[in-house]
Simulated assay, not measured.
Amino acid sequence: MEMIDLPHGTVSYRAAGPEDSASPPVVFVHGFLVDGSLWSGVADLLAAKGVRSYAPQWPLGSHRVPVPGADQSPRGVARQILAFLEALDLTDVTLVGNDTGGALCQYAVDTDASRIGRLVLTNCDAFDTFPPFPFNVIFQLLKEPRRLRFNLQPMRLRAFRHSPLGFGLLARGFDPAQSRAWIEPALTDAAVRTDAARFLQAVDPRELNDVSTRLGAFRGPVRLVWGTADRAFKPALGRRLAAAFGGAEFVEIPGARTFVPLDAPQALADQIAGIAASSKEQA
């Protein structure tokens, strides 16, 4: 893992692919209580295609370096994403988001799209679905650091962690070591719990719904790669989001759930590489 100091704090990230790649750089945005390892399979497949990618650990509860004093609102985390692009001088970026990270990508293009060339969103929050049922109920139980720690205790058990009450609704299967690593920071570090709770406290579905009214102003290509077996972010939500961008491409991934990067890494990598290639041809 590499480290970079940003105005809000230190961010660790994994870079994959050739440094001299001729393809636009890819930057991944994961969701709440997940880290950048969500994208490892996709990043390795892109690297084999000659695409350079970056998978940062955003401060959403699974990060290892706390960010005390940072603006942990969704808009604030979006600014952290933009600061990462600026610090590494990344331009014409393919920004890729999943779950909560998809909402953060929407905030990012609404805030400053100057370094973002195109957008790929997998199953994610949109409009006033932020978060969807049943996670809107679960997140209410995690908004205070002590309650977050208490309510995460059952997640120590793999059976619970991979059940519908844990991550079970989000993918067809999980690596137990990976899912354990996702919850470990919030279980063991009070400062990380505070960062995570501050984010949840600032989530406002009305604000994301307002952002949706301006998504059509983004001029780059947009592709939604949507798992059709998702019980939380259903395809109808994805099609509505595609329309909000002014007719973005909508690609169905049969059998995939929320975590498309885990359920269908090859299909997602192909779509990410494909949108970059097609936009380059059109330029």
Rank of each mutant, 00 (worst) to 15 (best):
M3H: 14
P7M: 06
H8V: 08
G9P: 01
V11H: 06
V11M: 05
Y13T: 08
R14C: 13
A15F: 12
A16C: 11
E19S: 12
S23A: 15
P25H: 01
V26I: 07
V26S: 04
F28E: 00
V29I: 10
G36C: 06
G36R: 04
S37V: 07
W39T: 02
S40T: 14
K49D: 01
S53R: 06
A55D: 07
P59F: 03
G61C: 03
S62R: 02
S62V: 00
G69V: 04
G69R: 02
A70S: 06
A70Y: 02
D71K: 00
D71I: 01
D71T: 01
Q72P: 01
S73T: 13
P74N: 08
G76C: 02
V77Q: 00
A78F: 06
R79Y: 03
Q80A: 09
I81D: 07
F84S: 07
L85D: 07
E86T: 15
E86L: 13
A87N: 11
L88F: 13
T91Q: 13
L95Q: 10
D99T: 11
D99E: 14
T100P: 06
L104Y: 03
C105S: 09
Q106E: 10
Y107W: 12
Y107P: 08
S114V: 08
R115K: 15
I116C: 10
G117Y: 01
L121R: 03
T122A: 05
N123M: 01
C124A: 09
D125Y: 00
A126T: 05
A126D: 02
T129K: 07
F133T: 10
P134W: 05
P134M: 06
F135T: 13
V137S: 15
I138A: 15
L141C: 15
K143S: 14
L148H: 04
N151R: 14
L152F: 14
R156N: 09
R158E: 13
R158Y: 11
F160Y: 13
H162P: 10
H162T: 15
S163H: 07
L165K: 15
G173Y: 08
G173T: 12
F174G: 06
F174E: 08
S179T: 14
R180Y: 11
R180G: 12
A186Y: 00
L187S: 06
D189T: 03
A191C: 02
V192S: 01
A196L: 00
F199C: 00
A202H: 04
P205R: 10
P205H: 12
R206V: 14
L208E: 09
N209G: 15
D210F: 14
V211N: 08
S212T: 13
A217S: 13
A217H: 15
F218D: 02
R219G: 13
G220W: 04
P221I: 02
V222H: 02
V222F: 07
R223L: 06
V225M: 02
D230R: 01
A232G: 12
A232W: 11
A232Q: 14
A236G: 14
A236N: 13
A236F: 14
L237P: 11
G238D: 05
R240K: 12
L241N: 07
A242T: 09
A242W: 03
A243G: 11
A248W: 05
V251D: 10
V251S: 10
G255Q: 09
A256S: 11
A256L: 03
F259N: 09
P261D: 09
A264R: 08
A267I: 09
A269Y: 05
A269S: 07
I272Q: 05
G274I: 03
E281N: 11
A283S: 14
